[in-house]
Write a protein that binds this DNA or RNA. Structure first.
Lengths: 166, 166
DNA sequence: CCCAAATAGCACTAATTCGGTGCGGTTTTC
DNA sequence: GAAAACCGCACCGAATTAGTGCTATTTGGG
């Protein structure tokens, strides 16, 4: 349904919370005392993030989780991929690698290639969104251009790619 | 799961097929003879697209469906909105208008605003993708800049918005 | 004039996914 | 050695999605 799952939502809440705890280990209990989120589910999500090595864990009484890398280098794309798999915008895309490279609608499937482009653009967007920018949007350095130009650039490129005339 | 539904996939197949049938009415049978898609489901989807006035229908023996507007003015965003509702990237967003404007995780919810931005960017992308560009990507006029610069512009803007340092 | 072909509408079932939990085990600190 | 925390896996109920049944209505052609 083109919507992020609760798992991803809880994962992002936890991760963003960790951004401000640089290095220190944060327990699931601490997160759940701060936000009204189901404890067990958040724990399950953090375990997944640990398996994909986005966070590190420390067991024992004073244990918890901490970011495995800097908040600048962790991307939204990585989090989503870890918690709900790489986004395949259609089943077409999802089945392609699993099968023989065909999707059943091939060879006459007229939307495979275009949808693929959309998928890649969304993916690019998420890969270029850092965890830090989610936690503190205003604190992110913006490289060569001032913030105000960013949005216009984005719109410009989108229009260039496929301008609706309406 | 950040994935378009089958309904949307079938809808796009049908719509793209209609792009090449400018004005003429296309029956569900014709679409299903061309692509291996479930007839009844495609019919159901086209009925929805007719209700949202993206296509026009003609009943009777020589009836079928045709685009209600030009392929340039119909956007991917409209199709998705018609077939699976406006995309809310988190339940947070989805519940906000339904409830009291709060999402339960408020007021300490740390991801509401950032996720909102992501949602809007994806939405922008889809609103700026025309049906014609899906059907014939190469035939779309690209405005002021040559095609080759489009992709770089897109990447540049994404990086500007939130550059991961990895 | 009547039949075939097509859309219109609505309800319904089966399968998949998602949100959430149970339970026992291991590690660490105090 | 007890409490607190993570580890792993399986399981259930609810919601969403994919797909179908059935009947009515409209239109064109023999």
């Amino acid at each position: 349904m083109l919507q992020l799952t609760k798992r991803t939502e809880y994962g992002l809440i936890a991760l963003v919370h960790m951004v401000d705890r640089d290095g220190r280990f944060v327990s699931v209990r601490e997160i759940c005392e701060r936000y009204p989120v189901p404890r067990r589910l958040v724990a399950e999500v953090l375990k997944d993030l640990c398996r994909t090595e986005l966070v590190e864990s420390q067991r024992g009484a004073a244990g918890g989780y901490a970011l495995a890398r800097s908040a600048d280098s962790i991307t939204l794309g990585e989090v989503v991929a870890a918690l709900e798999g790489a986004p395949a915008l259609t089943s077409c895309e999802a089945l392609a690698p699993a099968r023989h490279g065909e999707c059943g609608v091939e060879p006459t499937c007229p939307i495979r290639s275009p949808i693929h482009k959309i998928r890649q653009r969304i993916w690019h967007l998420m890969e270029n969104t850092s965890l830090r920018s989610l936690a503190h949007p205003e604190s992110v350095s913006l490289g060569a251009a001032p913030p105000s130009t960013s949005f216009e650039l984005e719109l410009a490129s989108a229009s260039l790619a496929s301008p609706p005339l309406r």
